[in-house]
Design a protein around this nucleic acid. Structure first.
Length: 494
RNA sequence: GCAGCUAUAGCUCAGUUGGUUAGAGCACCAGAUUGUGGAUCUGGGGGUCCCCCGUUCGAGCCGGGGUAGCUGUACCA
């Protein structure tokens, strides 16, 4: 092994992945628990599927090539079959339900949580591994199931401490979007490419002003870096129809009722489109009668992933604004979404299997909660028992054990440094309490218990070393038998 | 992917018209302090100036290419 600096191995995190410390993990644990409770209150049951699936089960082979889509992390097994890391929790659920169709009750209501992986360009707040928490109902084609997802999403956000008014659940319907496409002559296979362009333009309604959207629908748009995005090349009448459909002409999105009127006009006499509008009207009615109308609204800007959704689609958006360290506003935008995917389970089976689901982006939502000041604090460390005399390690272990038996996390110092360094160590661990038993205490059958939190407070008022040392801030010496009691009292202070 | 900007210590950055041994603050480690965290003082470790090629007597600085990051845009099943 050479110690030449130039060929020393460099410790480095893989691009687009992140380590997570105790504070972040504690926050996640708390969030996940809250979401789980809410989902169970709504009658969903737990299910876990593996991180890896056969690529064909995820439906991610490129259509013309014998290899998986680049966006998924994939590799070949020793029998040459392609395996992939899951990129969402919906496709694996579809596989599970199809495989266990005869065993599960229908409709099947389940939830799951875990990391998903996407091989995409990472950016700030955008990782190649992140956490999702999903709930799905498989085997119900009723709009009740869709409405329920939206209402449960609202309940979940509130349970997480996001106040009403700081978020919105927005609902649209792929059938309506398809209907509008038909109405502007972009139905059928030959319109597919431009149809995508139009849908993407609509998807950007909350990002750009209407004039920019109009450019994307027409010839194209030049962005501020000088890059040109080609447009859908629609004629003026069609652009007008799409803009009217969105209802964004002068004051953004209006009430659900107004939006539904716009929708009905925009789909013209497209049968599919009208069906979509009817479904949305039903959802709006359910939401209204359940008392959720102030949180859930029909919104034309929701388009969602353009592939497997077949009916209602929804998105949960945070509407409050937070400033970062530089005073620039951060937009959190969408923290969850979902929709109806009637074809996904059916791929594995001959018969139809309607399904709808909602997915929470746990990582992104956690960042938002952090900014709201609702993130978990750095958790406290264990009580540290200092090792004053290496010959007496057994005694220190016994002290630590008595604390553990009382349910108090405790450890003995395992390094080789002196007392000063051990105190520093305890400080770094964020230990609330240190336990000291040198020869003085031992002889008297006593133990010194030091409140590190209180000590830290006191240190702010003390300037010079001698006074600080003399003060022995926040510590008491008690008989050994009172160790647990004393520590417990100190811990109870915070 | 496309476009613009950037790259010097673990972090934030300075570095003159191209000129000896590349600096600061913070952080880290040690001592002052044989049994007490913080503050203070003293000392210490830490650099392929992103990589390669070129211009030059001489490059952290100039030119070309590459890589990575940031911002916008596209994509996001």
């Amino acid at each position: 092994m050479s110690d030449n600096k130039s060929d020393r191995l460099k410790a480095r995190l893989a691009r687009g992945f992140g380590d997570r410390g105790p504070a972040e993990l504690a926050a996640t644990r708390q969030m996940v628990e809250t979401i789980r409770q809410t989902y169970e209150l709504w009658g969903f049951e737990a299910l876990e599927t593996p991180f890896i699936e056969y690529t064909d089960a995820l439906g991610k082979f490129l259509p013309d090539l014998d290899r998986p889509n680049e966006g998924v992390f994939s590799f070949q097994d020793d029998d040459e079959q392609w395996l992939s890391l899951r990129y969402d929790l919906t496709a694996p659920l579809a596989r599970y339900v199809a495989e266990n169709w005869d065993r599960v009750p229908k409709p099947f209501r389940s939830y799951r949580f875990g990391p998903v992986f996407r091989n995409e360009k990472p950016g700030p707040g955008r990782f190649r591994q992140f956490l999702q928490f999903d709930a799905d109902t498989v085997g119900s084609g009723s709009v009740m199931a869709d409405a329920e997802m939206c209402m449960m999403a609202a309940d979940t956000l509130e349970a997480l401490g996001i106040p009403r008014g700081s978020y919105a659940i927005k609902v649209n319907n792929r059938k309506v979007l398809d209907g509008v496409m038909e109405a502007i002559g972009l139905g059928g296979d030959e319109g597919a490419g431009r149809r995508l362009t139009v849908l993407r333009a609509i998807d950007k309604l909350d990002k750009f002003p209407v004039e920019e959207i109009a450019k994307l629908l027409g010839k194209g748009r030049l962005d501020e870096s000088g890059d040109f995005t080609k447009g859908a090349d629609l004629d003026l009448a069609s652009i007008d129809r799409v803009i009217k459909f969105t209802g964004w002409l002068d004051h953004g999105v209006g009430s659900s009722n107004t939006t539904l009127v716009n929708f009905e006009a925009a789909v013209g006499n497209s049968e599919l489109g009208l069906e979509g509008v009817r479904e949305l009207a039903e959802i709006a009615a359910i939401v209204e009668s359940s008392g959720y109308a102030d949180r859930i609204r029909i919104d034309p800007s929701v388009v969602r992933g353009l592939e497997y959704y077949t009916g209602p689609v929804y998105e949960a958006e945070l509407t409050f604004e937070v400033k970062d360290e530089d005073g620039k506003p951060i937009r959190f935008g969408s923290v969850g979404g979902g929709g109806r995917y009637d074809g996904l389970v059916a791929r594995f089976r001959g018969e139809p299997a309607p399904a709808t689901g909602f997915s929470i982006g746990v990582s992104r939502l956690q960042a938002a909660l952090q900014a709201l000041g609702k993130g978990a604090a750095e958790p406290a460390g264990p009580v540290v028992v200092l090792v004053m005399d290496k010959e007496r390690t057994g005694d220190y272990l016994a002290l630590a054990r008595s604390l553990r038996e009382a349910g108090i996390p405790a450890e003995i110092y395992l390094g080789s440094s002196g007392m000063n360094a051990q105190m520093k160590y305890a400080d770094r661990r964020r230990s609330p309490v240190a336990v000291i038993q040198g020869s003085n205490e031992k002889e008297a059958g006593e133990v010194t218990v030091k409140d590190l939190v209180l000590g830290k407070e006191m240190s702010k008022k003390i300037e010079d070393r001698a006074a600080w040392t003399e003060a022995r801030a926040g510590q008491v010496t008690v008989p050994e038998a009172k160790l647990v009691e004393t520590v417990r009292e100190m811990l109870a202070r915070y």
